[in-house]
Design a protein around this nucleic acid. Structure first.
Lengths: 106, 106
DNA sequence: AATATTGTTCGTAATTTTGCGAATAGTTTT
DNA sequence: AAAACTATTCGCAAAATTACGAACAATATT
């Protein structure tokens, strides 16, 4: 009965995963990854949600650290946070590679 | 103003990410990945949550398709679903590799 | 100074998530 | 048949998520 505390890595990975856990946010990140449509307005025109809802999703991604916005009047230029993105990549890779897909299963 | 519909891939990736979006579920998957503690009871002893809550988290992972349970009386043997895991790996890899980390950002 | 543009915040509502203990269901053992 | 064991489901509550339109702030243009 050794109740183990969760590790910081597990918390961090879950935090990133949670941020990716909505199709709209996946779409946002894909647009930013392609470096197209980096302005709120551009995304607002493409994504099937209200502007205010988009702001909320962008904020989620900001809070998770995956993106940041730069104010270039009159618009805000959103960009992926390379440092955090690299960390996310590493954590996801670690987890996903941990499974030997050739093993037997019951 | 071309409101695009989200793709099935985006929905699927978000579904997987959402399932990974809780530290307890990350811990569960890591245990299953290592193929240790594959029984509910074993996990229950290690993880700092109630048994009933653990069942809920296992169910989330099952609903997302990432794991499945086999009844081997009197316990249930949980295992990662290799097929879905491979799909998740592919989708995450695709997204995470899409960013050129050496590019400039504003 | 008034107007237009951009994006966030506010107010509200419906739904989902997370958590626990108690009760339940299904097996096996006594 | 009764008792023991394992794991899920139920009932409940608190908190978080998702969504929208209206109102607001900040800046640029007329």
């Amino acid at each position: 009965m050794t109740k183990e505390k969760l590790t910081t890595e597990q918390e961090q990975l879950a935090r990133f995963a949670k941020a990716l856990g909505h199709p709209i946010r996946v779409a946002i990140l894909q647009m930013l990854a392609k470096q197209t449509c980096c302005y709120h307005g551009d995304m607002s025109e493409v994504l099937p949600i209200a502007k205010s809802t988009l702001s909320q999703h962008l904020n989620e991604l900001k809070e998770a650290g995956l993106i940041h916005g730069t104010f270039t009047p009159p618009t805000i230029y959103y960009c992926i946070n390379n440092e955090k993105w690299a960390l996310a990549k590493q954590l996801f890779d670690n987890l996903l590679a941990e499974v030997d897909l050739s093993r037997e299963c019951y």
